[in-house]
Amino acid sequence: MRNRIIYTFFLVFILLLTGCGSNASENNNEKEKAFTIGVIPVQTVGEMETAMDKLQAILTKELNREVSVEVYPDYNGVVEAMNYNKIDMAYFGPLTYVVAHEKSGAKAIITQLIDGEPFYHSYIITHKESPLNSIEDLVSNSKEIDFAFGDINSTSGSLIPSIELKDRGVFESEDVHQFKSVRYTGSHDATALAVQNQQVGAGAIDSAIYNQLVESGKIDGSLFKTIWQSEKLFQYPWAVHKDTDDKTIQKLKSAFLAIDDEEILGAFGASGFTEATDSDYESIRQAAIKQGIIKE
């Protein structure tokens, strides 16, 4: 009897230890596993920091787990981070999204609204003192023009305008073109400032970011002319890793749809957020295929 009591006590003690160990392990895993988000640099990194801190706080509360938001220095870095499972969610440009979807199965779930609509355009802008008044003028005088794209992986700052200029016979690549020079500034605000300061004769830019830069006073809108506008482009997606569970996706959607903080919205030139799906980016996918960026 005495041996049986000792054995029973020992068994209960082991079970208690196992349970405590399991709970501790689960708690540690929860603490260690932050939900990570990568963001492309639609503006220079420093300009976005405060807004991203606010977004991080909102999502941490809504997901009830630590959330870490990081603005990457270039577009491709966000694609590779998703591809190598370094992040759980990303804010992509449409082009970087279709590349990430192709490489790693990223899934678009949210996009931004501009004046209530999920669309924007690619602009080609010049200084008001420029003699250029149309894209035809730009093409005719290309040998005299220093031209600026944004990031090479940007939809509106590179892909769409480069296709237009290629179709018009003045651009093939950074090294093969009919311009005086071609440069990639790395971000939309850098392109706008290069045009404003007449460091380049014309540049390609996201229409929504351009308008936001004007409204915020970061550039002087009276110093610009828009000489070309693309067809409508579906707005930048927020996309999750292919393994993200449905419960987390629903929490993320709810959190974004409820955001009304002006500083967060302003960082993206947005008036709000709405749901998005992969099919919304089919036209961008076809453009990427045309340029040989992804295979059909």
Results as ranks from 00 to 15, higher is better:
residue 35 F to R: 02
residue 38 G to A: 04
residue 22 S to V: 06
residue 26 E to I: 15
residue 8 T to G: 12
residue 18 T to Q: 10
residue 38 G to D: 01
residue 21 G to I: 00
residue 31 K to E: 13
residue 26 E to M: 12
residue 38 G to I: 00
residue 41 P to R: 01
residue 28 N to K: 14
residue 28 N to I: 11
residue 37 I to N: 00
residue 11 L to S: 13
residue 27 N to P: 02
residue 33 K to N: 15
residue 19 G to T: 08
residue 17 L to M: 04
residue 21 G to H: 00
residue 31 K to M: 09
residue 31 K to I: 08
residue 37 I to F: 01
residue 29 N to P: 03
residue 11 L to R: 09
residue 19 G to Q: 05
residue 30 E to N: 12
residue 35 F to H: 02
residue 15 L to F: 06
residue 9 F to S: 13
residue 7 Y to T: 15
residue 31 K to W: 04
residue 7 Y to H: 08
residue 26 E to D: 14
residue 17 L to C: 05
residue 39 V to T: 07
residue 7 Y to P: 05
residue 33 K to A: 10
residue 13 F to K: 05
residue 22 S to P: 01
residue 20 C to V: 11
residue 37 I to G: 01
residue 14 I to P: 04
residue 7 Y to F: 15
residue 22 S to F: 05
residue 13 F to I: 07
residue 37 I to W: 00
residue 14 I to D: 02
residue 41 P to A: 02
residue 25 S to K: 10
residue 20 C to M: 14
residue 12 V to M: 11
residue 26 E to A: 14
residue 27 N to G: 03
residue 7 Y to Q: 12
residue 10 F to H: 09
residue 38 G to H: 00
residue 34 A to G: 01
residue 37 I to M: 02
residue 27 N to R: 02
residue 8 T to S: 12
residue 17 L to D: 02
residue 21 G to S: 01
residue 38 G to R: 00
residue 15 L to T: 06
residue 35 F to Q: 02
residue 25 S to R: 11
residue 10 F to R: 12
residue 31 K to G: 05
residue 31 K to N: 11
residue 32 E to G: 05
residue 10 F to V: 12
residue 8 T to P: 04
residue 27 N to M: 03
residue 17 L to Y: 02
residue 12 V to H: 05
residue 41 P to C: 04
residue 26 E to C: 06
residue 37 I to E: 00
residue 34 A to T: 02
residue 33 K to E: 14
residue 12 V to Q: 08
residue 37 I to L: 00
residue 18 T to S: 14
residue 22 S to H: 04
residue 32 E to K: 13
residue 16 L to W: 09
residue 29 N to S: 11
residue 7 Y to V: 13
residue 16 L to I: 15
residue 19 G to D: 04
residue 40 I to C: 03
residue 18 T to G: 11
residue 38 G to E: 01
residue 28 N to C: 06
residue 8 T to F: 12
residue 19 G to M: 07
residue 9 F to L: 14
residue 32 E to L: 14
residue 12 V to Y: 09
residue 37 I to C: 01
residue 16 L to A: 14
residue 24 A to G: 14
residue 11 L to H: 08
residue 26 E to T: 15
residue 11 L to N: 09
residue 37 I to Y: 00
residue 37 I to S: 00
residue 23 N to L: 15
residue 39 V to H: 07
residue 12 V to T: 14
residue 10 F to W: 11
residue 6 I to S: 06
residue 24 A to D: 09
residue 18 T to D: 08
residue 41 P to I: 02
residue 13 F to M: 10
residue 23 N to T: 13
